[in-house]
Design a protein around this nucleic acid. Structure first.
Lengths: 348, 348
DNA sequence: GCGTAAGATGGAAACGTTTCCACTTGGAGT
DNA sequence: ACTCCAAGTGGAAACGTTTCCATCTTACGC
């Protein structure tokens, strides 16, 4: 690899000191017209560009941000990262991205590495905001940071969806459609405080509405045979007419599997997802879901970090209660009447 | 922000020289047992971590890779980046990500910035591999790099799909189903050499099969009313029974719009997509498409760059002809017979 | 008991910047 | 003619590492 030229080469060629070159190029001090020209010529000739490494060492600032998220396979995070990246890019910062694949140890190690790279700030979605090693070390070094999707512990900023309330809302929607027996499908339960919040809200909502405690089907990350799992689940809980999936991808897969085992959606079983990914609107039946705005959240988190860095007032956040909305869709329909008698007996 | 401690602080606390600290911590030279212990204690006490910036300056290596892609909104790129990132991460490299949003000037500027940050290598999907400013400057500095999705100009490495042949294949599939009048729907035509290759192949395939030149509907990035556009398009080209969309998202949107204007898929119009995104298999009807493996491509491109860096033989690439496969789906069905007479008249 | 090699160790240079400081120059004000 | 100031300039230190080299000890073999 060819060695790029340094400020010294420029100085030599322009017959002046390095200080002068620095001043000219950064317009940070006086310089005679001729000198300026000689420097500029030399820069041109050598195709000189400043080395950010040297600069960083001297200024102890890298114009680089660390972004840590679970995975890009989930469009929610992909969208959010897009927002993070574009906001920082506009502000002249580059984004160092790490996907943890929901692994805690990767998360903490990645954060350490990024810290030693001296990132100027962090935007992160951690596995569990309350217990995150990495988050703690960021805080103890007082590096500007903002959580994304995680609800913040008291001392941190965060842009997140109110998972708990959203799940309550989902129960309400099910109830308003006459559903009484509900199921919850979860992925990555162990490694996502978001999924747990949704479940918690869902249980609470069922309780408030005097429904039975919803049945839980937890799905391993590498599950291939959702059809079978789902068939068994419904055999064990035959009265279920509504399923809440902890994210949209899972919801779509669920619908597919329900079809595969000869159940009609929404006629036999209604399905509601979470996230509001775009394709949910394109499929037939369209997916009823909690709609969120991952990209906007990403932008917000990035803005928050920028505000910390530049010592500006933090950007205004939308009300937490507005962090989601229910989007109706064809996958949710009123419960058919024929079972009414039975269900009521079980429900009380 | 608290200042992290430096190697000098450690040296002072351990009562030895910085050289010794460096040697101990990197196990790069001898040291007495007691000294080692004192150093390790000091490190512990100060929570010392090396500053990668200082290291980079000295070693002129940053363990950082630049990754430039159009957008994360398209799951194809998101998947690919996932592959890139994980491969580099395993090798101890971090990934600096930039999304260009298909803008050429962002692309070239981003590449320049990344170069001044002294990235050790590049993985990139450029707008047009033959004319990319940024790519040229990377090459002239002889920085290890590998293209992704772009077919490489002779002097570069790349992991890509054979868009042209894939499009030929799509025509064959349409033809084998009896379709004679085809349409092509393209997004981002101006800013993606991939989309253009697909169109070129599609035209060529039609020619080879003695079909009429396919009608082209080019769609702006911000189009909201695909329904209307599509209705007009089909009014102008009423004999079309098969539509090839230049990517899966667009294909799904197309199916939705066709439904909205009262056309049945695949009964009235068949649709084939491109990319093979996962949700395509979950919807009803499932999406016929060209299946690709973006994540694997990303891993491959990353491996290629790593091989350049470490001076190893390049990883073996799958045959270009195996870079895609046709995945059948419910969105493609035989042309209904009723129009046969008409079409044949027009076709010859 | 002496020479010598190997083991420990620290000083200092180098990597590419920025910035402080000190030095020249020339022109304006007295 | 003298002082003073501003503009223009370059040397050098500092940022945090690694590594070369020189120095000093120690133990070993004769």
């Amino acid at each position: 690899m060819k060695q790029p030229s340094t400020i010294k080469d420029v100085a030599k060629l322009a017959q002046c000191g390095v200080a002068t070159v620095s001043r000219v190029l950064n317009s940070t001090g006086p310089a005679s017209a001729e000198t300026k020209e000689r420097v500029l010529d030399a820069v041109e000739k050598l195709k000189f560009e400043f080395s950010e490494v040297g600069r960083s060492l001297q200024s102890s600032t890298t114009r680089t941000i660390g972004c840590v998220i679970p995975s890009l396979a989930n469009p929610v995070y992909a969208d959010a990262v897009q927002g993070v990246q574009e906001t920082f890019h506009e502000a002249g910062y580059q984004t160092l991205l790490v996907c943890t694949n929901y692994k805690r140890n990767v998360e903490t190690k990645a954060i350490r590495t990024l810290m030693s790279k001296q990132v100027d700030g962090f935007v992160l979605t951690v596995s569990d905001a309350l217990s995150s090693q990495g988050l703690r070390s960021i805080q103890s070094r007082e590096i500007p940071h903002c959580l994304l999707f995680n609800r913040a512990p008291s001392d941190a900023q965060s842009w997140a969806v109110d998972d708990y309330s959203a799940a309550l809302r989902v129960v309400d929607e099910f109830v308003s459609m006459g559903h009484i027996h509900l199921g919850f499908l979860a992925l990555k339960f162990k490694t996502s405080d978001r999924a747990r919040q949704r479940y918690k809200g869902f249980i609470e909502g069922c309780f408030t509405n005097k429904l039975e405690r919803p049945a839980l089907l937890e799905i391993a990350e590498d599950t291939e045979n959702l059809d079978v799992l789902l068939a068994n689940f419904l055999k064990e809980n035959p009265s279920i007419t509504g399923i809440f999936a902890s994210n949209d991808i899972l919801a779509l897969a669920t619908i597919r599997s329900l079809r595969a085992i000869q159940l009609r959606v929404p006629k036999d079983v209604s399905v509601v997802g979470f996230d509001g990914i775009h394709v949910g609107e394109m499929v037939e039946p369209s997916l009823a879901t909690i709609a969120t705005e991952p990209r906007m959240l990403g932008q917000g988190a990035a803005q928050t970090v920028l505000s910390f860095i530049n010592d500006l007032p933090l950007p205004e956040q939308p009300e937490l209660s507005l962090s989601f909305s229910f989007r109706n869709g064809g996958s949710l329909a009123p419960r058919i009447a024929e079972n009414l008698g039975d269900d009521d007996v079980i429900a009380f």
